[in-house]
């Protein structure tokens, strides 16, 4: 069974359909990129997979014993976070919270996992620095480390490169691919950046308030939707 299966899924806000008729599967170890224009329902779908929003029709199934507490999530940053007084380490460690249940304090194992992920993402030098003083790219790495603390199975990234410069963007993409390949964690990413999406992802889901395309990246490049969307990017 697939890790995530969507069967005829629709989402609506107060009766207005945001996105409808989604049918796709995500297998273990896949790297899925969700692309589409603004308002095409990308972020809504992410919320649906995270169970923050329930579908108005259809079902989102989680297979292979995946629980929602086992999903690592990298949300878009909020304004409040940008000036938050917390050290990078405190932020990363907070990713372990869901594994704690009602126990009040972090165990030695939680701290070890946090340190492992800090090492994996190469943010050792900034671990005691204040989060609000970090650059955009460093902040994203810290949040990615926190997401990894919460999961061993599935990573959901909501526009992780928004507002980053090209060099840092490139580094972050490579880091995510490395995580996907080396640890086998399934990655689902929402992105505006179609060119990078087709470069790194194994599968593409193109939304246009409906499911315009779902399949392997190779066939997306040859499909009508893919050609139009990518062509549009190039001619801009």
């Amino acid at each position: 069974m697939a890790l995530i299966t969507c069967q005829g899924v629709s989402f609506a806000y107060e009766g207005n359909t945001a996105v409808e008729e989604l049918n796709f599967e995500v297998q273990n170890g896949d790297y899925l990129c969700i692309v589409g224009e603004n308002g095409s329902g990308k972020s809504t779908l992410i919320k649906g997979i995270l169970r923050l929003k329930s579908p108005s029709a259809g079902t989102v199934l989680m297979g292979e014993g995946l629980k929602s507490a086992e999903i690592g999530y990298l949300p878009q940053q909020t304004a409040a976070q940008k000036d938050f007084p917390a050290s990078a380490y405190e932020v990363v460690l907070s990713g372990r919270l869901s594994s704690r249940g009602i126990l009040p304090f972090y165990s030695r194992k939680d701290k070890a996992v946090a340190n492992e992920n800090i090492e994996l993402l190469g943010i050792e030098p900034i671990r005691t620095r204040c989060y609000r003083e970090l650059s955009g790219g460093q902040q994203q790495r810290v949040l990615l480390a926190r997401a990894l603390c919460a999961t061993k199975r599935l990573l959901l990234l909501d526009e992780p490169v928004a507002g980053l410069d090209p060099l840092v963007t490139h580094e972050l993409y490579r880091l995510i691919r490395k995580i996907n390949r080396e640890t086998g964690i399934t990655v689902i990413m929402v992105s505006h950046d179609v060119a990078s999406a087709v470069k790194y992802a194994s599968h593409i889901l193109h939304l246009k308030t409906k499911q315009a395309f779902f399949g392997r990246t190779g066939s997306y490049l040859n499909s009508g939707v893919g050609k139009a969307f990518l062509g549009g990017e190039l001619s801009d």
């Binding site: 507490a69 690592g72 999530y73 949300p75 909020t78 976070q81 932020v91 919270l97 959901l156």
Partner: peptide, 23 residues
Amino acid sequence: FVLFYNKIFAVTFDENFAKATGV
């Protein structure tokens, strides 16, 4: 406050993340 310190931190810093990971 002492018992729920870590939870209060998580909810303050990023409510969406906390909610998404099952808190």
